[in-house]
Simulated assay, not measured.
Amino acid sequence: MRKKIHPKNYRPVVFKDINNEKILICRSTVETKDSIQINGLDYPLYKMEVSSFSHPFFTGEKRFLGKTGPAERFKKKYEKYNNINKKK
């Protein structure tokens, strides 16, 4: 193996899902600003918006976000022109 290519700050880091407060501890080199104490030990803390604990693909729940796709937006935008042509 090649020497001097591995990062120096490879350490245990707490990844916290801010949607449901679940945590995962694994080794990482991610830069963090916060820290957290778990079982009397201080760990660097990285806050995530989405993880496998909260993503609909992994949880199996279906969510409607209220966003429409490009086809629906196009139809809504130009339906007034379609109604004018029908009146003639």
Rank of each mutant, 00 (worst) to 15 (best):
Tyr46Ile: 00
Tyr10Met: 03
Met48Arg: 08
Val50Leu: 12
Asp42Phe: 15
Thr32Trp: 04
Lys47Ser: 05
Lys4Trp: 13
His6Val: 01
Phe64His: 09
Val13Asp: 00
Thr32Asn: 04
Asn39Gln: 15
Asn39Asp: 15
Leu45Val: 02
Arg11Val: 02
Gly66Pro: 04
Leu65Ile: 10
Pro7Gln: 05
Phe53Pro: 01
Val30Pro: 02
Lys8Arg: 09
Ser54Phe: 07
Arg2Pro: 03
Met48Leu: 14
Asn20Cys: 14
Arg63Val: 03
Lys22Met: 10
Glu21Leu: 10
Ser54Tyr: 08
Arg2Cys: 04
Leu45Thr: 03
Gly66Asp: 04
Ser28Tyr: 00
Ser52His: 10
Phe15Glu: 01
Pro44Gly: 02
Arg2Tyr: 12
Tyr43Glu: 04
Phe53Ala: 05
Phe58Asn: 09
Arg27Gln: 09
Glu61Lys: 10
Tyr43Asn: 09
His55Glu: 06
Ile23Ser: 09
Val50Ser: 10
Ser52Lys: 14
Thr59Gln: 08
Arg11Ala: 05
Val50Ile: 10
Leu65Phe: 15
Asn9Met: 05
Arg63Lys: 11
Lys8Cys: 08
Asn39Glu: 15
Lys33Leu: 15
Ile18Tyr: 07
Lys3Leu: 09
Lys67Met: 07
Gly60Ile: 00
Asn19Gln: 14
Arg27Cys: 06
Asp17Phe: 03
Ile38Tyr: 14
Lys16Tyr: 06
Ile23Thr: 14
Pro44Lys: 04
Ile36Lys: 03
Val13His: 00
Phe15Val: 01
Thr29Arg: 06
Thr59Leu: 11
Glu21Pro: 01
Gly66Phe: 10
Leu45Asp: 09
Lys8Ala: 11
His6Asn: 03
Phe57Trp: 13
Leu24Glu: 14
Thr32Leu: 03
Gly40Ser: 09
Phe64Met: 05
Ile18Gly: 04
Ser52Glu: 14
Pro7Glu: 06
Phe58Glu: 07
Cys26Glu: 15
Lys47Met: 11
Ser51Trp: 09
Asn9Gly: 04
Pro12His: 06
Glu31Pro: 00
Asp17Lys: 02
Ser51Tyr: 03
Phe64Ile: 09
Pro12Glu: 08
Asn39Arg: 14
Ile38Val: 12
Leu24Phe: 11
Asn9Trp: 07
Pro56Asn: 05
Lys22Asn: 13
Thr32Val: 05
Gln37Lys: 15
Thr32Ser: 08
Leu24Asn: 06
Ser28Met: 01
Lys3Ala: 10
Tyr10Gly: 01
Ser28Gly: 00
Gly40Met: 15
Asp17Pro: 01
Asn39Leu: 13
Arg63Asn: 05
Ile18Lys: 12
Ile25Trp: 06
Leu24Ser: 08
Tyr43His: 10
Leu41Cys: 09
Ser52Cys: 10
Thr68Arg: 13
Lys67Glu: 11
Ser54Pro: 00
Thr29Cys: 15
Pro12Asp: 10
Glu49Ala: 15
Gly66Trp: 11
Gly60Ala: 06
Leu45Gly: 05
Val50Arg: 12
Asp34Cys: 11
Asn20Ser: 09
